[in-house]
Amino acid sequence: MNITHNIRVIINGQTREISVAPNETLQDLLRYRLGLVGTKSGCETGDCGACTVIVDGKAVNSCLVLAVESNGSSVTTIEGISSNGELHPLQQAFIDHGAVQCGFCTPGMILAAKSLLDEDPNANEKDIRLALAGNLCRCTGYVSILKAVAAAGKTLRGGK
């Protein structure tokens, strides 16, 4: 099984041509070959959400996506959502609301929340709970995370 595939994928806005092994996951590609280690690995079975990235606008568990499947896609990781040191409103809200403790779930949480708010800027507390149910956090008890996402939603809507 030494075949490799050449894929072309846009990662955080940058087009890259990469050759990948057939059994390589997107998570492994990002973390161990491209050095985008902000994408975390907590279970590799789709249960924790720490590896969440956004592929073509949708949050997915990168541990359950093969790298070859991302051919032709656009992938956003935690490294790609701030611009020139300016934090995304979600990132700022996570800091301000104490939604970060050990930080291991944080990148996945922020990306899951971002995909939700991109999809539905008016997401309410119930929608937020549902969207983040696949992201486990053992430190914060989720309370401040839920608050932070609601606050960021408000900021993104222009304070409403």
Partner: peptide, 12 residues
């Protein structure tokens, strides 16, 4: 289907 897996699972 709204409760088939988390958002990330449901997206795949």
């Amino acid at each position: 289907l709204a409760v088939l897996g988390s958002m990330q699972i449901g997206n795949r």
